[in-house]
Design a binder for these strands. Structure first.
Lengths: 338, 338
DNA sequence: CTGTTAGCGCTTTCAT
DNA sequence: ATGAAAGCGCTAACAG
């Protein structure tokens, strides 16, 4: 049909008015005769006009978009957070631009540049590595509001939503202790990201505080890739004196761990008690159903979006806002007396 | 630091050249003295220049972005497809803009408009309803290339990637027949989307062709929401004479169905044989592991992206390209002799 | 109430 | 090999 997408000028010509007037009716501006307004709206229909968001942004300096950087959209946790973000942002007229870092710190940088190039009004970041100095430097130089999602790059004073891993881990270990477990192990991701650090630290603290037994070799700190879940739990079981309970700290790790357990014929909770991270279809439907440390993932995204909206709305308070999301323990059947 | 993001002009001033020259080095253009090029690159660093993608797009008419419309990013299938799309598009310098329709036909329309407004160079669509006349009309009027993902809006001659549901459904029913099943049932989504239509049609054809038994009331055609999976399989089991095998045609339906089965204490495959759709962590880890109709979901996205790239590269062949993706049957333990 | 116009940051002829 | 200038589509003064 249309050779190229029609512009304001085409609508103006069709309606026999100036482009300024057309612009006014688009922006619901005042001072337009009702009769004219109607005619112009008809013309827009007629020529199939779609406002050019880019041109508008160039002029106004606002894009009504925010960037969300994640490791991998195919990761269910990120996807659910993305949905939470989009749900609140969309309601306020913002569009979410997703960028996948493929869990690579290099790509973190590249993608932030990409988003900057598109002039997003704000950024929500689940960095692949919040310890990379290059990232921290870039973040400090950013002139748009940023919200960090369970990341804490040193020296960056942005708003954050932080998960209270400590709370969940303590609940889990207390639960195991009550069941009579003494020798407990951990499988979680590396320290290049806050969840990895926080979970490992909380685990060690809880072990000490509760008087449990867990040597450094019982604490498998690797990566959040599913393969590591299988590998690590296998290594744990191969020990001369294996632990009687294990905490798998990472939703991506759980399927791998469960596969390996099944492959070896390890029976939960008879041979081993297992606490996993995040309540998913897998943990709920597994036999036995898996005891998990859970948090409201959708809510995390929604809160991040609200934090950002606050800044975008002009709240430029110096102090950075921090929201802490609680974690609970969902008791099911993968944990039992030793 | 920077009051506002620096522009070409700032770089030009800093380097003591004209903006045209700076533009040339950014675009790897020819005719720039090597010495000058180096100096300008240094200036870009110094002022922290980030090219303004929007301004560039306004000028060139290309945004190097494509829109991907889906029902819900928190739906694992969509997310995996999105990853497949992004993997190939990104490699060719394109950015993917995601839009969630929330499985609502109204939003399909709204989001296509949104994407059009951002002047995406092409569109990949998983429509919430490919039978809506309003959608078909809009699609016919579009001046950018479109790829449909397992959708077939009538009268729209766009490229498509189609899943061969018939193949998988026939394999599944033949398998059940070989196990001695005669009375088979179906749970799947409604006809507002091609998968729903194709699966139901293939099921009926297979029943007829293989001489199986399945009345219309054995075919629960509702929606792809998880709740329907539970509801439908419950209704099936409440029949005076329940089927001995059921096909759950929809990845989202499976968790709901499995939950309901467990709640009722139905044992697979003893009390019922079950074939589900799509190989996921849930179907692989469930006890017993679930026999599934599977397809390469990531590949679907990648193929769609390649189709689109073809058109974006100037291939404006009149005939629309159609890629058909095969489906296989993964035999596991949820199906057994009657 | 409506129209004219400058300019957002960039690419791209066209001169030089 | 470099610069000047037009113009992409739009909004926001400013005039009338």
């Amino acid at each position: 049909m249309a050779r190229s997408t029609p512009s304001l000028k085409d609508v103006a010509r069709h309606a026999g008015v100036s482009i300024a007037t057309v612009s006014r009716v688009i922006n619901e501006g005042p001072y337009v005769a009702p009769e004219l307004r109607a005619r112009i709206q008809a013309s827009m229909q007629a020529v199939g006009y779609v406002p050019h968001a880019l041109a508008r942004s160039l002029r106004t300096g606002r894009t009504n978009s925010v960037g969300y950087l994640i490791g991998d959209i195919a990761n269910g946790m990120f996807a659910t957070i993305a949905r939470g973000i989009d749900d609140v942002l969309q309601q306020h007229g913002y569009t979410t631009l997703l960028a996948n870092s493929r869990d690579d710190a290099q790509q973190d940088l590249r993608m932030i540049g990409e988003l900057q190039g598109r002039r997003v009004d704000g950024l929500i970041l689940s960095l692949a590595d919040d310890t990379a100095p290059a990232i921290c430097e870039v973040l400090r130089g950013l002139s748009i509001p940023v919200v960090l999602l369970d990341r804490e790059p040193p020296g960056v004073g942005a708003d954050r939503v932080l998960v209270n891993h400590r709370q969940g881990v303590f609940k889990a270990l207390r639960h195991l202790q009550a069941l009579g477990h003494r020798h407990v192990a951990l499988v979680t991701g590396g320290p290049s990201t806050r969840p990895g650090r926080a979970i490992a630290e909380a685990f060690r603290d809880a072990v000490a505080e509760l008087g449990l037994l867990s040597t450094p070799t019982d604490q498998m700190v690797g990566s959040f890739r599913p393969a590591f879940g299988a590998e690590a739990i296998g290594a744990l079981l191969d020990r001369p004196r294996p632990p009687s309970a294990v905490l798998v700290g990472g939703a991506q790790l759980t399927p791998g761990a469960l596969r390996e357990l099944r492959r070896r014929g390890v029976r939960l909770p008879h041979d081993l008690s297992l606490v996993a991270y995040d309540d998913t279809d897998v943990t709920a439907l597994y036999s036995p159903a898996v005891t998990v440390i859970a948090r409201d993932v959708h809510h995390i995204g929604a809160e991040a979006a609200r934090l950002l909206l606050d800044r975008l709305g002009g709240n430029i308070a110096a102090r950075s806002h921090i929201i802490t999301v609680p974690t609970g323990l969902v008791l099911r059947d993968s944990t039992g007396p030793v």
